[in-house]
Amino acid sequence: MSDRDIPRSGETAPEEALSRRRLVFGGLAAAGVVAATVGTFGRAATAVAARQPLSDKVVVTDPTLCVGCLACEVNCSTWHASVGRSGVPRIRILATPEVKLQTQLASYLPGRTGFSPSTCRQCPTPWCAPNCPTDALRVDPATGDRYISETECIDCGKCEVDCPVEWKGTLARTSLPIDSKRVIRDATNNVYVKCDLCIGRQGGPICVERCPVNVAIRAGYVKSDHLALDLRPSTQEQWEKLV
């Protein structure tokens, strides 16, 4: 198995991950509505929500603590590329001039305000998963991570169509407009990618670990009761807050 198949310290072989068929048909069978919904997988996802484990974690971002240094984007690209996956960043920072930096940071870095990092919300119902024709979009049974196996992805784009959250605005990195779902296409490698919470990486998501504001908060230099990029349980309540 190559690393693009997302190894997880031997815990979860991809074939053991919850597949589309198990998600949809298993769930529908339990709900007793197989005949009524065959051929409308997109709608069927609602019927199977109860069968799907929630993701243990989701990266929650606080724009008022973001100084736009792009460490999250760069490290996301670098780490994923280093393990043989697509180097397209799964977390993006949008330029949002209306967002004001936290007072302590703003007093030190007045020129670095107006940035909003965001990534996949690890939806309680993974809308992106059920329509994947190759079972490339998987739910890790151990952690509930929603991830894409890039070796299985056939670049059809159904996950992108079904993704309910968007990036819309101006990218801080290039100052160019972005209007995209949070499942994004890597046009070089012809695969779709999304935040996989750095599945397989010891220490968890690299963006959370390496954000310099997070480092400063952990060291006590920046006063905040939460991190700029925080890992929190992906509960329904948490998800509704994000939406």
Binding site: V67, C69, L70, A71, E73, V74, N75, Y108, L109, R173, E209, R210, P212, V213, V215, A216, Y221, V222
Partner: peptide
Amino acid sequence: GSYCYAVLGASDLHAVFDGAACF
């Protein structure tokens, strides 16, 4: 390594354009 000291440190010499993780 994994950290840029300039982001929250003394940045007299550093980038005002196009910094990304490293400045």
